[in-house]
Design a protein around this nucleic acid. Sequence first.
DNA 1: AGATGTGAATGGGTTCACAGCA
DNA 2: TGCTGTGAACCCATTCACATCT
Lengths: 203, 203
Amino acid sequence: MIVSERVIQRLVLYRKILQNLLTDGVTKIYSHALGDFVDSTPAQVRRDIMNIGYKGTPVHGYDISLLISSISDFVDPTQTRNVCIIGLGNLGKAILDYCHARNSKINIIDAFDKDPSKTNIEINGCKSYHINELETKIEDDRIELAILSVPISEAQAIAERLIRAGIKGILNYSPIELRLPEYIYVENRDMMLALEKVAYFAK
Amino acid sequence: MIVSERVIQRLVLYRKILQNLLTDGVTKIYSHALGDFVDSTPAQVRRDIMNIGYKGTPVHGYDISLLISSISDFVDPTQTRNVCIIGLGNLGKAILDYCHARNSKINIIDAFDKDPSKTNIEINGCKSYHINELETKIEDDRIELAILSVPISEAQAIAERLIRAGIKGILNYSPIELRLPEYIYVENRDMMLALEKVAYFAK
DNA sequence: AGATGTGAATGGGTTCACAGCA
DNA sequence: TGCTGTGAACCCATTCACATCT
């Protein structure tokens, strides 16, 4: 079954919520309850779950732990995927703070910065190196994805280096539109644009 | 003209790109060129611009500076909207780093943290206060929007305080789904979910 | 000639509504 | 009874196609 970006986004969101519920000792959930968590409808939840082939029961709804497994089977890569982060300023460090790996298949293992004072440190299991080691570490550590948290002025050049080094996808926090070949998957997360959207819709 | 979330997101993105082009001395643009920047189609760009009532000319396309004004007239609030940020950890500081106000109508003016060592400092024109001044500052400074960058354990309680204090919209970077009244506009930006999406779609 | 503006067609995502089930 | 699973219906977003303009 092939699904859209939207469905994937909702599935990983469901998984996060379900993992929290499971931690709290909840073991079953109905589509309408899960829908409430994400401000969505029961029909939408059921349709999304249908996409991945998992089936609940009319009486008990969905078994949370089985549903988590089904979502993981569907959305997670088969092998682990290694990730690097470029730029260890406030943003880079913030991202590493938030990376208590919910998903054991995705590992942020290397960080790079041009500032020597930020190299050879370790945050949350991620080791940092000087930016001029970028290409060799990406190859040696079989890194496929990158998180970009560098200043605007450096983002395009670094992105091009990443691609030449074999990176397949980029999560871009630099507030610039990267010009890259279309076979590279790029997800942009411009913080000011997000705030502008909130400003428009809030009341 | 009432438009969807999607259209607003694209419009603010167009504006960012147009502002950069203008800075580079470009003054006119065709729909297909703008479409290329955002991996979209000329028809989509023209339709979006049609929504806001701006008209280009067949020969020269769109006048960038006039188009920026039209987008701003459409998406910006009529009065300035004040924003606060809660949590001055790495993430909070990172967000302030990125806030060289592209949009003069949206001002991040106050920051709050529970750590006294992070209060009474100023970053990019934003002053920080202790969290127990939250309610009074929000009222005194007429703050309507909030950016939440606190640890998970505190996010829900802080969000509730924000709403009681009169906040209308929240940009939430804490990796938790807030349970709030539906009249509050919340935009969630979970970084790990974004990475999971990239991992799924990248090649 | 080559762009825009836009009604109409298309396509995809969401919701409805109901059969089936425990 | 009250849920799920799902074909069908609906609705919104995107794209097409062409008249129009300079």
